[in-house]
């Protein structure tokens, strides 16, 4: 459902040109759980931004869910993001002035849902992450793990085709991280494609596929047998 062909990305700052991505070829099927790893500055966040349509590509083609999204305008990108894509961030990025429910509701407003539909989806998403009783709380009244669960609820409330998670457990302790990873796996099992940037090898093992990036290029092609074995054991 996600196809990238020779995708390149170049950053220019004055005369300095940085080739952030060099000719990425990547094909993801629906329902995959992809872990992206790589050292700092290797381009994994850039890749995530590009896959999530947060940034435009400079070369190549990119097809998402059967639609060519290589050369979309800013407005069209916004629409595609709103309808098909969701994000989970390392620092949660919840809006501090809004209640938990209002945070989850915010992206749904851009889709033109009725108030009743929005309420139904917010309740469902909160139920899923187990925070139904915290709907009226403010983000800073919750623990880090709870905040990240709210962020996950926000990500799934719009039933996206793909969720991009940028080091979702980076700010959490091991126990909390486990909870978050369990949630992500559950969401993935229900059919949502998940693409996750991570540093944690244990989390890599939970993914169905591992992509390693070095200097803006993918160096580990395809799924490793090791991961397939883990998956088989789990099944």
């Amino acid at each position: 459902m996600l196809h990238m062909q020779s995708v390149t990305k170049v950053y220019r700052a004055g005369d300095v040109e940085t080739r952030a991505l060099r000719s990425i070829d990547l094909h993801l099927a629906k329902g995959e759980f992809v872990a992206i790893t790589g050292p700092s500055g290797s381009g994994k966040t850039t890749l995530l931004n590009i896959m999530g349509l947060l940034e435009n590509i400079d070369g190549g083609t990119y097809t998402l869910d059967g639609k060519d999204v290589s050369r979309l305008s800013d407005g069209e990108c916004s629409r595609v993001r709103n309808e098909k894509i969701s994000f989970i961030f390392q620092s949660y990025n919840l809006i501090p002035d809004l209640s938990v429910a209002a945070n989850i509701e915010a992206p749904l407003r851009y889709r033109g849902y009725s108030a009743a539909e929005r309420r139904r989806r917010v309740e469902a998403a909160l139920g899923k992450v187990g925070l139904s009783t915290r709907a009226r709380h403010l983000p800073n009244q919750l623990s880090g793990g709870q905040q990240q669960r709210v962020a996950i609820a926000r990500a799934i409330a719009g039933s996206p085709a793909v969720i991009f998670a940028d080091e979702p457990t980076g700010n959490l302790d091991t126990q909390m991280s486990q909870q978050i990873m369990d949630l992500l796996q559950e969401i993935n099992r229900e059919g949502c494609t998940v693409v996750m940037v991570t540093h944690n090898d244990a989390h890599v093992e939970r993914a169905s596929r591992h992509i390693h990036i070095l200097d803006g290029a993918i160096v580990t092609p395809a799924a490793s047998p090791q991961i397939a074995a883990v998956r088989g054991a789990a099944a």
């Binding site: 999530g52 947060l54 800013d74 407005g75 916004s78 629409r79 595609v80 993001r81 709103n82 309808e83 894509i85 969701s86 994000f87 961030f89 990025n93 809006i95 915010a106 992206p107 851009y110 889709r111 926000r154 719009g158």
Partner: peptide, 10 residues
């Protein structure tokens, strides 16, 4: 930025 990521247009 977060709002934009979640699909808010300019």
């Amino acid at each position: 930025g977060t709002r934009r990521a979640f699909g808010a247009s300019k």
